[in-house]
Design a binder for these strands. Structure first.
Lengths: 226, 226
DNA sequence: CCACCTAATATTGTCGACATTTTTTCTTAA
DNA sequence: TTAAGAAAAAATGTCGACAATATTAGGTGG
């Protein structure tokens, strides 16, 4: 994983380290979604001053993982179906565009790397021992590479720097490792083909359908639960 | 203006006020783009402590108006043609989707408000005394209302909370009040029609073309200057 | 004269204390 | 008993000082 994500690169400062710890804790639910954040309490837990903690909180706020109100305090963002669907709408728009731009701007080398990655996923899938790997890390890797391939810093920042963590949080907390592994793999293949053909229009359409399919899958799942 | 923008609502805290002052200063170029930010100097200028200033800087960073490096400091974001075009790509994707969602989710009342606003712009345009008004405030108002009409908090946050300020900065510093007033007005009309018809697909397509046209207009302008 | 290393300076990161605001608790009156 | 208001407690916002890091200035050797 890791790659170029600015939020996962070497943490040099204390606030960075605490930010990463809290990031994990929020993503995996150790710090419950919707809960209030007590600055004095957390500062004591992490054995740092409140100033440093607040610095970390600011980074979390940048990722939209916590929300602050003046003179009142911070809360971990609430996980809701509506919120999850909102994110999918944004992803459909942004990753679709990223895919179009990737088709235009990726280097041949980057495209070859993607093909190699897909081949690796294919063998892992065939072996049947990497299903969960493919579903989680593999899927994220794929989307990550496409986004970086857009070579558009704004797109990269918004998707990898902000939304990425929210997506992971929802995956963890709602426990939805989409059971679309095989289908998703085929869709990934076709997207890479379109990129390799430098067909931006098709690439965008396929990516949008790919993400929309995920969203509809979730909607169906939710409907069944009720 | 103002509306629901979280960054323009009543500033209660000192850091908020300083944030807004710096926001304006950066947008209009008083604080030059690309320049380094000296914390001790600015803290003295605004007569506040460094802690408070840093709080304001964090807000500016959330809007992508400044960039921070650990142990080195902050810089105002650099204005470049490439950067401007990147923003247009993101806007095309996000505002296009916002427009689709607006067609689905806007209340009839909101639609009527938009129609009223457009009529007002039309009369101002007819009188020929509000051309600049239409180009600046009016255009922003239109896009603002569409975005809010999506009823998607993520879209609203990203577009109105972050990109909005960057867009204004580029408009100010590059001095491009697009000379597309008449054309833009017609495009706005058609977009509202599509929204009123609840035709999300068409609404998205029209908004994307509208923004792409702006982008191409800028590209043409740049090409002429060289 | 230039490159490299070292010392001095300035800047950023972190800390603990105080000021202000909000929340809670307790009292009092209807 | 409940509601409203006042006092107490706790939380957030702001401040100035110290520590750690980066930048600059100066000196030495090639």
């Amino acid at each position: 994983m890791a790659l170029n994500n600015p939020t996962t690169q070497a943490a040099v400062t204390t606030a960075d380290k605490v930010f990463e710890q809290m990031l994990h804790a929020i993503v995996d639910g150790t710090i419950k979604s919707g809960s209030k954040i007590s600055e004095p309490e957390l500062a004591k837990n992490y054995q740092i001053s409140r100033s440093t903690l607040r610095e970390a909180l600011n980074r979390l706020e940048k990722c939209h993982l916590i929300e602050r109100k003046a003179n009142v305090g911070s809360r971990v963002v609430e996980c809701s179906i509506a919120g999850l669907l909102e994110i999918y709408v944004v992803r459909e728009a942004l990753e679709g565009m990223a895919c179009r731009e990737a088709a235009n701007n990726m280097t041949d080398e980057e495209i070859n790397e993607m093909k190699a990655m897909l081949a690796q996923h294919a063998s892992a899938k065939a072996l049947q021992d990497g299903v969960s790997y493919y579903q989680e890390e593999g899927d994220l890797d794929f989307h990550y590479k496409v986004i970086l391939g857009s070579h558009n810093q704004q797109l990269i920042n918004i998707l990898c720097g902000q939304l990425y963590h929210l997506v992971r949080m929802y995956r963890c907390q709602f426990g939805m490792n989409s059971p679309r592994a095989t289908k998703a793999f085929d869709e990934h293949s076709r997207i890479i083909e379109a990129i390799a053909d430098r067909d931006g229009e098709l690439a965008e359409m396929l990516m949008r359908r790919h993400i929309a399919a995920s969203r509809k899958n979730i909607e169906k799942k939710i409907a069944q639960q009720q």
